[in-house]
Amino acid sequence: MELFDQLLLLVISLIANLFSAVAGGGAGLLQLPALLFLGLPFGVALATHKVASVFLGLGATARHLKSSTFDWHFVSFILLMGLPGVVLGASIILQIDDRVAQGLLGLLTLGLGLYSWFKPELGQLSAPVNRDLRGYLVGGLVLFVIGALNGSLTSGTGLFVTIWLVRWFGLDYKAAVAYTMVLVGIFWNGTGAITLGILGDIEWSWLPALIVGSLLGGYLGAHLAIVKGNRLIKRSFEVITILVGISLMAKALA
């Protein structure tokens, strides 16, 4: 890549990952289309973006570990339920036409944003619920499905985890985003990147700018979310989900 393209990628990656770290997902809204616009095929762009997204998780984690308290049994549960779905989704995405899936995912994502918008108190206070056997079974099944979406369609699936942790398990937005950035950002995206790298190709020469932007954006976004709290995170989540939903539907119809 030419120096100008690397600088452009760095700026796009920084902005995309900063907002993603605040909202709990959505970096693919800007970053993946940028890779496609600059000439990468979809499968290569998706795998390259997945690798870069791991560094979003690392940057955000570096900040969240300073001030967030994690339930490590809950951490293990999210990983156990989500990672098999990620592998499944990443294994099949390179074989199918994803336009219909993107359109449906976009519609659902838009609906999540509007749902949160019209629920002013959603996720403002932590009130743990559904921590019995039935709650974990239903919650785990949905996390598996979201994991499959995460492995196959990169735009916005971290947002699904964030809203599910808020709506089903009763976390506030601040805690939900912390879990999403650490677990989805590092482990889910890392698993997806490895699977896509084995089955497809990664454009390694594009990664330096993406990695720097992801690390800085992740750290700065996590810091902003921690300092400003649930109200800003909720509003950011709603704006990002609505934009991601519209973007996915537009791509599906193009």
Rank of each mutant, 00 (worst) to 15 (best):
M1T: 08
F4L: 15
Q6K: 07
S13Q: 02
N17C: 03
L18E: 05
F19T: 06
S20W: 01
V22Y: 01
L30Y: 01
L32V: 03
L36D: 06
L36T: 04
F37I: 12
L38A: 05
L38N: 06
F42W: 11
F42V: 10
F42A: 15
L46C: 11
H49G: 15
K50V: 05
S53M: 12
T61D: 08
T61H: 10
R63K: 14
K66H: 13
D71L: 13
F74Q: 06
V75M: 11
V75C: 15
I78W: 00
L83V: 15
V86L: 04
V87Q: 02
L88G: 11
S91R: 09
D98Q: 15
V100L: 15
A101C: 10
Q102E: 15
Q102S: 13
G103P: 07
G106Y: 05
L114D: 12
L114T: 11
L114N: 07
W117R: 15
E121T: 13
Q124T: 02
Q124W: 03
P128Y: 10
P128I: 08
R134W: 14
Y136V: 08
G139H: 09
G139W: 01
L141E: 06
V145H: 05
I146E: 07
A148N: 12
S152I: 06
T154R: 13
T157P: 04
G158C: 06
V161M: 14
T162Q: 09
W164H: 09
L165Y: 02
G170V: 02
Y173R: 13
K174M: 05
A175K: 15
A176V: 03
V177F: 06
A178G: 09
A178N: 09
A178F: 00
Y179M: 07
V184T: 12
V184K: 08
W204S: 06
W204E: 11
P208L: 07
I211M: 09
V212D: 05
L216M: 10
Y219L: 12
Y219M: 09
G221P: 08
A222T: 01
I226E: 14
R231P: 01
I233R: 11
K234G: 03
R235D: 13
V239K: 11
I240G: 03
G245N: 09
K251A: 11
L253D: 06
L253W: 14
